[in-house]
Design a binder for these strands. Structure first.
Lengths: 154, 154
DNA sequence: AACATATTTTATAATAATTATCATATGGTA
DNA sequence: TACCATATGATAATTATTATAAAATATGTT
């Protein structure tokens, strides 16, 4: 964890930005909630718990900065808010998501899976891919189990 | 075109909605700009040209309705506005997009391409896929050509 | 350490997109 | 035609995000 912050600090420095206390607090919240998909407001509230003096605008600016440096990715699941997701260290591409249309849970897929598709797209559409966004909408394993229970009862 | 509107009319009716003049005007704009990715505001301005009395709220409501009926898909390329894209008739899944990070152009890929990936995801993550969103960010063929020109000049 | 300079933050105002409200209008049907 | 549900238009309200400007903080130099 600490080493991870150290590395992010270096990334900031090499782009001539500083890791201010506010930025560090924001990064910590992201690290501590890595499995979640927090909105700017969510991050703000969590940061505020430990650093109550922070302002919402600072959180927005920090998230924007981290996005620019590809430390986090900004995603949008269609619910009107942007969410911020830490990129795996050293990952060339953004990971994928499974959004459950029953319970709203968002699970992550770290595997690439798109290598073949991307080479087809690059060749056939002559498009130089830099990044991607892939989200599946459907029913997660938890809800499938729940649904089965209901069927039994009926 | 006319037959396409007829079919949409039937889809609305079978969900007990009417194809009012305002809704028809909105659908026509979507059909006439099928290759574009219009925001609600864009649609509003285009509809207004032929039906100046229409209100913005009606356009929003119509787009929401069409989204609900899966006649259009609501997408978000990360620029703060939702865009609306007609689904191909009979298409089980939403098509993919190529967003150029240089010129902003958005091209469409109608081929599925994801069959293999989806079967892996369904099996390995036990997730029942209902739909997907896939967007590639990179450099389109037009900008690659432009970039080459610049290199020559340099 | 003191100073000059650039960066960052805070609080707040401004903007932009979207949704809610409510009185009015419309369309089909008994 | 009168009724009733549905749809619309104008506008207000809400929500997310960005811009602004003054104050604070950090950095580099002498």
């Amino acid at each position: 964890m600490e080493t991870r912050i150290e590395r992010i600090k270096k990334q900031l420095h090499s782009a001539s930005y500083k890791l201010t206390p506010q930025r560090e607090a924001t990064v910590r919240v992201l690290l501590e909630n890595e499995e979640d998909h927090l909105s700017a407001e969510d991050v703000y509230l969590l940061v505020k718990e430990k650093s109550p003096e922070i302002g919402l605008a600072t959180v927005y600016r920090t998230l924007e900065l981290l996005t620019e440096l590809k430390i986090v990715d900004k995603i949008n699941f269609g619910d009107g808010v942007s969410r911020y997701d830490l990129r795996q260290e050293g990952a060339a591409h953004f990971h994928h998501h499974l959004v459950c249309i029953e319970c709203g849970a968002v699970d992550e897929i770290q595997e690439d899976l798109l290598e073949d598709v991307e080479s087809v797209v690059e060749r056939k559409w002559n498009f130089k891919i830099k990044d991607h966004r892939l989200t599946f909408h459907g029913i997660c394993y938890r809800c499938q189990d729940k649904d089965k229970e209901v069927e039994k009862v009926d």
